[in-house]
Computed example of a mutant assay.
Amino acid sequence: MAWNEPGGNSNNQDPWGGRRGGDRKGPPDLDEAFRKLQESLGGMLGGKKRGGDGASGKGGGFGLFGISLAVLAAFWLYSAIYVLDEQEQAVVLRFGKYHETVGPGLNIYFPPIDSKFVENVTRERAYTKQGQMLTEDENIVEVPLTVQYKISSLKDFVLNVDQPEVSLQHATDSALRHVVGSTEMDQVLTEGRELLASEVQERLQRFLDTYRTGIVVTQVNVQNAQAPREVQEAFDDVIRAREDEQRERNQAEAYANGVVPEARGQAQRIVEDANGYREEVVARAQGEAERFSKLVVEYHKAPEVTRQRLYLETLQEVLSNSSKVLVATKGEQSNLLYLPLDKMLEGRASGSSVGLSAPAAAGAADQGSQVVNDLQQRDPRSRERR
């Protein structure tokens, strides 16, 4: 049976071991606990107690106050201790004045006299901007820009400038307009984008250092700048014309690179041939002079023999270069017979080109040879000169 049913428990006890009625040793009910809490708070605040002697009421108030202090101390300690990872730093202000900058690890500060600002100082942050700019030649272009940056000095980032990232946006707009305004449109749209990005980054970093924002710009990327949509087609035609011009120029340079070295090689070859011819002529002249000097010495030794030898050598040299054959005989009738053997040999070699067949040309040459033989047999003293 249940403990509170009639006859169920002879001892008339509740489950907490106490008796019903007078001597109850179980926990008090909620009303009694709330009443005691009010009395304790009243005692701490200087109020009167509802019951009991003064000593016991004062001791209970101090115990609850100690517990409250312990709870507050634990909560303060929990909020005062903080941990920073490897990418973070914190700036601690004491009474609103800069106190220190702490790095990664377990740290503590003392609120409310201290306040801290925690930021990730290694993460790359990005800011994107796009707007219409006026170029140096008074053309309007749309320039999309992306700025990558990170915090270099957390103290400057927190204390020197209110909303430093907003200042970064304003400085970016100023630097971009200044650089684009001093650059022509074709440079912005085509090959000048890299130089444009470099100049914007340099000027933007100079602005941020002047403001002491604690921000360092790591990269500035100027994307494909383009003309406004209303005139985009005309700008595309201009760009294609420039590309065609560059292609034609490259082809011309390639042709020049192929022709000029060849012409230089031919010129060098002509120069070398001329130098060789000069050396040959000079050497031949020197050889002839040397030969003549030696010949003079021999002439003085034997003039008659030398003259005969010179005559025969000269005659041999002249007749060896002649293709005509002259035949002379001694007798009462000294006739000079001319045989055009050079024409006969040419006709034999190229009979088809002059209208003669090969057998006809060969026959003409044989007839010439037969005539020479007959003359030699008729006059054995005849001679042949070439």
Rank of each mutant, 00 (worst) to 15 (best):
1 M>A: 10
1 M>G: 09
1 M>N: 10
13 Q>D: 15
15 P>G: 04
16 W>S: 11
23 D>A: 08
24 R>A: 09
26 G>A: 02
27 P>I: 00
31 D>W: 11
33 A>D: 11
34 F>E: 12
42 G>P: 05
48 K>G: 09
48 K>L: 11
49 K>A: 14
49 K>P: 12
52 G>W: 04
54 G>M: 10
57 G>K: 07
61 G>H: 07
63 G>R: 10
67 I>Y: 07
69 L>C: 12
74 A>D: 07
75 F>M: 12
76 W>F: 12
85 D>M: 01
87 Q>M: 11
90 A>G: 05
93 L>H: 01
94 R>Q: 08
103 G>L: 00
105 G>D: 02
109 Y>E: 09
111 P>Q: 03
115 S>T: 06
121 V>A: 01
121 V>D: 02
138 E>L: 07
138 E>H: 10
140 I>L: 10
140 I>D: 07
142 E>H: 10
145 L>R: 06
145 L>A: 02
154 L>C: 00
155 K>M: 08
162 D>P: 07
165 E>V: 02
165 E>N: 06
170 H>V: 12
174 S>F: 14
175 A>F: 03
181 G>D: 00
181 G>S: 00
185 M>W: 13
185 M>R: 11
186 D>F: 10
187 Q>P: 04
189 L>A: 04
197 A>L: 03
205 Q>I: 02
206 R>A: 14
207 F>I: 03
208 L>Y: 01
214 G>M: 01
216 V>P: 04
216 V>L: 06
217 V>T: 05
219 Q>P: 05
220 V>I: 02
222 V>F: 04
227 A>Y: 04
229 R>E: 15
230 E>H: 08
231 V>W: 04
233 E>D: 15
233 E>A: 12
236 D>T: 13
238 V>W: 12
239 I>L: 15
248 E>H: 09
249 R>V: 02
249 R>Q: 14
252 A>V: 09
255 Y>I: 08
259 V>G: 03
262 E>N: 06
262 E>L: 08
263 A>Q: 13
263 A>K: 07
265 G>T: 09
267 A>Y: 05
271 V>H: 11
278 R>Q: 13
284 R>P: 02
286 Q>F: 04
287 G>A: 14
289 A>N: 08
289 A>S: 10
289 A>R: 11
293 S>T: 10
294 K>R: 15
295 L>F: 13
301 K>Q: 13
301 K>I: 06
304 E>D: 15
307 R>K: 10
308 Q>T: 08
315 L>I: 04
318 V>Y: 15
318 V>Q: 15
322 S>A: 08
322 S>L: 07
327 V>P: 00
329 T>Q: 12
331 G>S: 00
332 E>V: 03
333 Q>E: 15
336 L>I: 15
337 L>H: 05
338 Y>R: 05
339 L>F: 01
340 P>F: 00
341 L>P: 05
341 L>I: 11
342 D>A: 11
343 K>F: 10
344 M>D: 06
350 S>V: 04
350 S>I: 04
351 G>W: 06
352 S>M: 08
354 V>C: 05
357 S>R: 01
359 P>T: 03
363 G>A: 10
364 A>N: 12
365 A>W: 02
369 S>H: 09
373 N>W: 05
386 R>N: 08
